[in-house]
Amino acid sequence: MTQTTSRIFDDFARLMNDAAGVATGVRREAETVMRAQAERILRELDVVTREEFDTVKDLAAAAREENEELKARITALEARLATPDAAE
C-alpha cells in the first residue's frame, strides 16, 4: 500500500509541477499579447515617446531662458532711452 500511495503522490506532484510550468507559459504569452496591444493602441493614438517629450521640454526651457535674457536687454535699452543723457 505504501508503494501505491507514494506513486500516487509522485504522480500528483509531477502533474502540479507541469501545471505550474504551463501556467507560467500562459502568463508570459498573455503579457506579450497585452504589451503588443498596448503598443499598437499608443501608436494609433499618436502619443509621443518619452524621449521626444524630454527633447521638447529641454527646447522649451532653453527658449524660456532666452526670452528672459532678451526681456532683460529690452528693459535695459528702454531705460537707457528714457534717460535725458541718452539723447546726446
Score class of each variant (00 low, 15 high):
Met1Leu: 15
Met1His: 14
Thr2Met: 04
Thr2His: 04
Thr4Ala: 12
Thr4Ile: 14
Thr4Val: 11
Thr4His: 13
Ser6Cys: 07
Ser6Asn: 10
Arg7Tyr: 06
Arg7His: 06
Ile8Arg: 07
Phe9Asp: 05
Phe12Glu: 06
Phe12Gly: 04
Phe12Thr: 11
Arg14Lys: 15
Leu15Ile: 09
Leu15Phe: 12
Met16Thr: 14
Met16Pro: 06
Met16Ser: 13
Asn17Asp: 11
Asn17Thr: 12
Ala19Arg: 06
Ala19Lys: 14
Ala19Gly: 07
Ala19Val: 05
Ala20Asn: 12
Ala20Met: 04
Ala20Gly: 08
Gly21Lys: 04
Thr24Ser: 15
Thr24Trp: 10
Val26Leu: 14
Val26Ser: 08
Arg27Ile: 10
Arg27His: 13
Arg28Asn: 14
Arg28Lys: 15
Glu29Ile: 11
Glu29His: 12
Ala30Met: 02
Thr32Leu: 02
Thr32Met: 03
Thr32Asp: 03
Thr32Asn: 03
Val33His: 03
Val33Gln: 07
Val33Leu: 12
Val33Lys: 11
Met34Pro: 00
Met34Arg: 05
Arg35Thr: 15
Ala36Tyr: 05
Gln37Val: 05
Gln37Trp: 02
Ala38Pro: 02
Ala38Lys: 14
Ala38Gln: 09
Glu39Asp: 06
Glu39Ser: 02
Glu39Trp: 00
Arg40Ala: 13
Arg40Asn: 09
Arg40Leu: 12
Arg40Phe: 05
Arg40Cys: 04
Ile41Tyr: 11
Leu42Glu: 11
Leu42Asp: 14
Glu44Asn: 15
Glu44Leu: 14
Glu44Met: 13
Glu44Ala: 15
Leu45Ser: 06
Asp46Gln: 14
Val47Arg: 15
Val47Lys: 10
Val47Asn: 05
Val48Lys: 14
Thr49Met: 07
Thr49Tyr: 11
Glu51His: 15
Glu51Thr: 15
Glu52Ala: 12
Phe53Glu: 12
Phe53Pro: 02
Phe53Ile: 11
Thr55Phe: 11
Lys57His: 04
Lys57Cys: 05
Lys57Tyr: 03
Asp58Gln: 04
Asp58Ser: 04
Ala60Tyr: 08
Ala60Phe: 09
Ala60Arg: 09
Ala60Glu: 08
Ala62Ile: 06
Ala62Arg: 08
Arg64Gln: 03
Arg64Ser: 02
Glu66Tyr: 01
Leu70Phe: 10
Leu70Pro: 06
Lys71Asn: 11
Ala72Val: 10
Ala72Gln: 15
Ala72Asn: 09
Arg73Thr: 05
Ile74Asp: 05
Ile74Tyr: 04
Thr75Ile: 05
Thr75Asp: 07
Thr75Lys: 05
Ala76Leu: 04
Ala76Glu: 06
Ala76Arg: 06
Leu77Pro: 00
Glu78Thr: 03
Ala79Leu: 00
Arg80Met: 04
Leu81Asp: 00
Ala82Pro: 00
Thr83Ala: 06
Pro84Ile: 07
Ala86Cys: 03
Ala86His: 01
Ala86Phe: 03
Ala87Phe: 01
Ala87Thr: 02
Ala87Pro: 00
Ala87Tyr: 01
Ala87Cys: 01
Glu88Val: 04
